[in-house]
């Protein structure tokens, strides 16, 4: 979706402000939100792409004003409601009021903690070999789905070069909407800054994105 989350190349947000000696969490609730998100992913309640789409779907004014973990909380709540794991009446009441579906991997328990503190693997086998090779010139598609995609706006219609082939992975555009993993080849595609930002751009800058095979055509 063309949401406010897709901010590569936007102007006006000002300088990067660094907080010295930043703690992992600024409030206790932030850690609880992070842990709930990880746990509900590990027990099969939701996947990372659903979470991302829920956060992207936060209305732009709210998205920009919310802190990072406020966005995570809003996204978690929306995903749980959308998946019918939690009801709006339960959110209002602050407790469980009815029976909810069992999760694919059951309750998240102590034995699962080590697993979630290492990043999961999204590599999946696909039947066909990659259609592109390193060095190929490709043009990113001009797609504007209202659904989840990981093809940022700033590279759409731009011509880049395949630099790496990174295996075949779960396709977020499908998994975010519960349409299955539909694995696709993943590539690093690199662009000169001038291809993206025009002739005034710094000639020493190159930018790459991680792009799934359906995101581009041969140039």
């Amino acid at each position: 979706m063309n949401g406010v989350h897709d901010m590569g190349g936007m102007d006006g947000f000002g300088k990067v402000e660094v907080e010295a000696n930043e703690p992992p969490f600024h409030h206790k609730w932030e850690g609880r939100v992070m842990a709930m998100v990880r746990a509900m992913g590990a027990n099969g309640g939701l996947n990372i792409d659903m979470q991302r789409f829920s956060r992207e779907s936060i209305p732009p004014a709210t998205y920009l004003a919310a802190s990072y973990y406020q966005k995570w909380f809003l996204g978690l709540k929306k995903t749980l409601l959308d998946r019918k794991l939690v009801g709006a009446d339960e959110i209002a009441a602050g407790r469980s009021l009815h029976k909810s579906p069992a999760l694919p991997r059951g309750k998240f328990e102590m034995k699962d903690v080590v697993r979630v503190t290492t990043r999961g693997s999204f590599q999946r086998d696909v039947a066909s070999p990659p259609a592109f090779k390193i060095g190929d010139k490709v043009r990113m598609k001009n797609i504007n789905p209202p659904t989840h995609t990981r093809l940022p706006r700033y590279v759409r219609s731009k011509v880049g070069t395949i630099e790496r082939i990174n295996g075949s992975h779960v396709y977020p555009d499908s998994a975010a909407h519960g349409h299955g993993e539909d694995p696709q080849w993943l590539y690093t595609v690199v662009f000169p800054a001038r291809e993206i930002w025009g002739d005034d751009a710094d000639p020493t800058v190159k930018i790459s994105v991680e792009a799934f095979e359906p995101y581009f055509d041969r140039a």
């Binding site: 609730w29 709930m36 939690v86 602050g94 999760l103 309750k107 998240f108 328990e109 102590m110 699962d112």
Partner: peptide, 25 residues
């Protein structure tokens, strides 16, 4: 946030002690 954690705990989706362990990690 506490209310949501209560709901997930009551539904048997998460063990709060395991959430503590994630935060601590």
């Amino acid at each position: 946030v506490r209310a949501l954690e209560t709901i997930l705990t009551e539904k048997g989706y998460v063990d709060p002690a395991a959430l503590d362990a994630i935060v601590e990690t």
